[in-house]
């Protein structure tokens, strides 16, 4: 086994294990931190797939942004400030059945398909090519994504100001 294989197995175990802890943990904040380890593991998998820029973006956006938002959401909804909080699960049987069936089907499909593979391109960097692509072929999605983010920010701010307005009315 070479180093790549060792790193791959190590971090896929971390990723999947942390995801499992996230799903089955009783404490919802533990779930959130398990998600952090899972996302960081996925970033390492991206590096193994020669996608260094995406890996850094994954860390910056998911771990540094979305996860902190989620944690803030947890703390602000007063569910997580105490250790005693118990997570409630419903539909355990159908959910696990569905998940198991999905896994089996997908793995079967992946394993039996004969993929049209090409020899992996040895790239030293992706940033330059990604930038060229972003500014040429993908310029429209890029602008739309920017507008979408702007709208999302404005919407989120508007909603949270309405939230304070509602609270003030109540008082």
């Amino acid at each position: 086994m070479d180093l790549t294989a060792i790193v791959f197995y190590l971090f896929s175990i971390v990723t999947v294990g942390a995801a499992a802890i996230m799903v089955f943990s009783k404490n919802i904040v533990h779930s959130a931190f398990a998600l952090m380890f899972s996302l960081a593991g996925i970033a390492v998998l991206y590096v193994l797939l020669y996608a260094d820029f995406i890996a850094a973006t994954q860390l910056l956006v998911y771990v540094g942004g979305i996860l902190i938002l989620i944690l803030f959401g947890l703390m602000l909804t007063e569910q997580a400030v105490t250790q005693k909080f118990k997570a409630v699960t419903v539909n355990m049987l159908p959910a696990s059945l569905l998940a198991a069936v999905t896994t089996v089907l997908l793995v079967y499909a992946y394993a039996t398909t004969s993929w049209q593979m090409v020899m992996p391109e040895e790239r030293s960097e992706t940033v330059y090519d990604l930038g060229i692509l972003l500014m040429s072929d993908y310029i429209l999605p890029f602008i739309i994504a920017g507008v979408l983010l702007l709208i999302a920010i404005v919407g989120a701010i508007l909603m949270s100001t309405r939230l304070t307005a509602i609270k003030n009315e109540e008082q």
């Binding site: 896929s12 990723t15 999947v16 995801a19 499992a20 996230m22 799903v23 919802i28 779930s31 959130a32 998600l35 899972s38 996925i42 998998l45 989620i70 959401g73 947890l74 909804t77 569910q79 997570a87 409630v88 699960t89 419903v90 539909n91 355990m92 159908p94 959910a95 696990s96 569905l98 998940a99 198991a100 999905t102 896994t103 997908l106 793995v107 992946y110």
Partner: peptide
């Protein structure tokens, strides 16, 4: 690996009552 993550995510969406858990 991605299939495993997908089914775990599905599990979380279906079986948890907390909105934030579903988001995760």
């Amino acid at each position: 690996v991605s299939a495993l993550l997908l089914s775990l995510g599905l599990m979380a969406v279906l079986s948890r009552r907390n909105v934030i858990m579903v988001l995760m």
